[in-house]
Simulated assay, not measured.
Amino acid sequence: MTDQLEPMPDDWQRALAIVAHPDDLEYGCAAAIATWTDQGREVAYLIVSRGEAGIDTLAPAEAGAVREREERASAAVVGVTSVEFLDHADGVIEYGTALRKDIAAAIRRHRPELVITLNPDDTWGGTYWNTPDHRAVGRAVLDAAGDAGNRWIFPDTEAEPWNGVRWVAVAGSDSPTHAVDVTDGLERGVRSLVEHRAYIEALTDQDPESYARDLIEGFAHQVAERFGGRPAVTFRLFRR
């Protein structure tokens, strides 16, 4: 018997999604975000780098500008208008108090109930080694969700402490616990990834639209057997 996934909590209004690179949220999670914004929920993005080291054929200064534009366009597809960048250096993001402080400060500004991030584990599925940036940012997000509520930790941030984070949801986890039905958000999830056209064209010879559809629909339908036959995006949910 395949373990069934629980539905994500729905008694919240504000979320903040925090990831290392432009495009990290578009590999599946954006379909859930489209579903949430359709329901009237507020979702903001915080991207720790500009992804400037992600396109081999473009120098970092040019690539960073391109990838920022693509991320803003991608966010708009799923109803997100607030997209912030922290300008940590792509590829060499370091876990530590500086990163935790930047993320805690953003949590205090946005005051989310739900924080979303990406897999901080060593591997994807036990087969592919995860990148240092993903590991550093995911771990820092989990820690900063607590830092943000403690007035004695990083007391010099502009915004007041926020102890209202109720959950941290990790996308791309090898051991998910919850899922979101993305029947209504799936097409926009595909289109949001297509907006990263320059990145995809440097990554693969496959047509960007075919590439995005194959991945996003494939992921969502693969989960369906664990979620009542419905296409879904999965999360490992940590309660606070």
Rank of each mutant, 00 (worst) to 15 (best):
Y45S: 02
Y95K: 09
S210D: 14
A59W: 10
W162E: 07
I47K: 04
Q13G: 07
Y27I: 15
T57G: 12
A144F: 08
S173W: 00
G218C: 02
G96C: 12
A148V: 01
P231Q: 06
G149D: 07
V77H: 12
P120C: 10
A145G: 06
E209S: 04
T35Y: 06
G189F: 05
P60Q: 05
A32R: 02
E225M: 11
A61V: 14
I116P: 03
A89K: 14
S74W: 09
P22R: 08
I93L: 09
R197F: 00
A136G: 04
A145T: 09
Y27R: 09
A212D: 09
D56N: 12
V115E: 11
W167F: 10
L237F: 12
A145Q: 03
G164S: 04
G164E: 04
D10L: 10
F238Y: 15
T157D: 12
A61G: 13
E113G: 10
D87Q: 11
S210F: 05
V182G: 01
G28N: 05
A75Y: 00
Y211K: 00
N130D: 03
T57S: 15
G96M: 14
L114S: 03
D24L: 04
A44I: 09
A106P: 05
T234C: 07
T204V: 05
T57L: 11
V190E: 01
R188P: 01
L114K: 12
I55F: 08
G126A: 11
T117G: 01
D205V: 10
Y95G: 10
I55R: 10
A59D: 15
A159R: 06
I18G: 06
E113M: 05
G189T: 08
A105K: 03
G125W: 07
V190A: 01
F238G: 09
S173G: 00
R67W: 08
R100T: 10
D87R: 13
L114D: 04
D205G: 04
T117V: 08
P9E: 10
Y27M: 14
A76R: 15
T183P: 02
D121K: 02
E26D: 15
G64E: 11
A63S: 15
W36P: 06
T2S: 13
D205N: 08
E160D: 12
N163K: 03
A59R: 15
A148P: 03
A198Q: 11
A224H: 03
T127P: 00
I93K: 07
S49L: 05
S175K: 12
S175R: 13
T204E: 04
R139G: 06
T2P: 13
D174F: 00
L215K: 07
N163S: 13
V80K: 12
G51T: 08
A136Q: 07
E217F: 01
V165W: 03
V223L: 01
G40D: 10
G40A: 12
A15E: 05
A212T: 04
V78W: 06
L215P: 00
P60M: 07
A148L: 03
E84Q: 14
W36V: 05
L237R: 11
A136W: 07
G28M: 02
E68P: 06
